[in-house]
């Protein structure tokens, strides 16, 4: 799966690996979690209101449209959280029940 964001500069940074929905993905040291995710995936989360996938909006901590879950159940605002090697992120809600919990 190709990413949504395109890296145009600062491409010499050290690569790190994170896990996204169980799949190992490459990111770079200094990325925000949002950039780490969206350079290898197209979306960040499911809207709780049934209108589909979301990928953030304002990138400055104002819109709250980029909150993702860690596989431990912690919630992170992706645009203001620095990525760290080994992070495990869940971007999709469960298909079971009413689908309000992240898919572990």
């Amino acid at each position: 799966m190709s990413g949504r964001f395109v890296r145009l500069a600062e491409t010499e940074r050290r690569a790190i690996v994170i896990t996204v929905d169980g799949v190992a993905r490459q990111a770079a040291e200094g990325d925000t979690l949002m950039v780490a995710l969206l350079t290898s995936t197209r979306t960040l989360r499911d809207s709780e209101f049934g209108d589909g996938r979301r990928a953030g909006f304002c990138l400055m901590g104002a819109c709250q449209d980029c909150w993702v879950w860690t596989s431990d159940g912690e919630r992170l605002r992706a645009c203001t959280t620095p990525v760290a090697a080994g992070m495990s992120i869940v971007t999709q809600l469960s298909t079971a029940g009413e689908g309000v919990w992240p898919r572990a």
Binding site: V6, L8, E10, T32, V35, G56, F57, C58, L59, M60
Partner: peptide
Amino acid sequence: YSLGGAQVALKSQGCS
């Protein structure tokens, strides 16, 4: 994205 957000992506992270 917001225009400001598009600018942050580039300025702060070197991304389009």
